[in-house]
Design a protein around this nucleic acid. Structure first.
Lengths: 178, 178
DNA sequence: CTTACTGTACCGTCTGGACGGTCTTGTCAA
DNA sequence: TTGACAAGACCGTCCAGACGGTACAGTAAG
């Protein structure tokens, strides 16, 4: 909304995600984030008066980017493709990045499980929306859950699939979603 | 009320899981576990000399139970059912319990992400095994990932599905796995 | 003068874990 | 049968360190 000058905010958020990924979700301390962001602790507390606000910022940023990407994927290349198919493609692309990218979520959960509720309601709404747009419920269920599985693997950094297998999976899902 | 048999160990493990679920994964302190288990802190440290050992115990217990349940599901009711189908049924049953049951995993990850490696390799082996037993790779991929998604939802306590939907999903997967 | 910080010093709380003590049970010689 | 003694299981306390957060003086830019 404001904060025209400071890209400090973004730097701090990025630093927090980095620290969580590299040093482990349990080592996300304010000191670590500040030094990683190249900012003094006072400066960090200036942007995020409390650790909870920091986490909240992480969540909000994540959700905002997700929503933007989703909307973009829907509007683009819409060559007769179903919304479900667009979601599958988007998610597959997300999970191809080797970085788990969102392991800060574990930090947030450890801090307070309630940080998950915005994410939960977001997903709930997404699913509800897809239900309204997908004729066959069975296809939706299978595809949505499989994508959820892919995301989970990415998050836990425990990808069991080879490149070929992932590609085969995605094409199978797209066929189901057709 | 002394002279305890070493079922203290099991009580402690159960208490740790309870504390993680109820007070949040970040509040799994030795004191909390000890008092929950009805054991002094010294007694806890006697059974698990370090917090890391406690986590390790949690992981090992979890994996052992999983393996036993899997083997039981394979051998039982094998009315011509494929191993993949057995795995689907077992997992669906697991996820029907309303308790997330394994949210201590978040505590373990926060403590040290390396606690996940045994779980990762276990899953890797399971997947490899299923690959050897399932004729159609596409079916396996879709079903395995969908189940993974179900587990993830259960773990994050963010179940988007209704009872009916979950049932429909499982039957769809079983048909695919047929 | 305001905004956006930096830098340092400090406080209260919580946590893991080390330590020494205590109670119970098992073993075995006399 | 008994008494001594060792080992196992557990208790309760204490402590050093880390962490979140506060306070405050200073500063560079617009």
């Amino acid at each position: 909304m404001k904060a025209r000058r400071p890209n400090s905010r973004e730097k701090i958020l990025a630093a927090a995600a980095d620290v969580a990924r590299e040093s482990g979700p349990g080592s996300l301390s304010l000191d670590a984030v500040a030094s990683r962001a190249g900012v003094s602790k006072g400066g960090l507390l200036y942007n995020f008066p409390t650790k909870a606000k920091l986490m909240q910022g992480l969540v909000e940023d994540y959700l905002r980017e997700f929503e933007e990407a989703l909307e973009a994927a829907r509007q683009k290349d819409s060559g007769g493709e179903s919304p479900l198919a667009a979601y599958i493609r988007l998610s597959a692309r997300d999970c191809e990045e080797t970085q788990p990218s969102a392991s800060w979520i574990f930090s947030a959960i450890a801090e307070d499980p309630d940080f998950m509720t915005p994410i939960k309601t977001f997903k709930q709404q997404l699913f509800e929306r897809l239900k309204g747009e997908t004729p066959d419920l069975k296809s939706l269920l299978v595809c949505y859950l499989a994508i959820e599985g892919l995301r989970s693997m990415n998050l836990f950094d425990s990808d069991v699939l080879s490149q070929d297998e992932r590609q085969l999976l995605v094409s199978s899902l797209l066929e189901i979603a057709k």
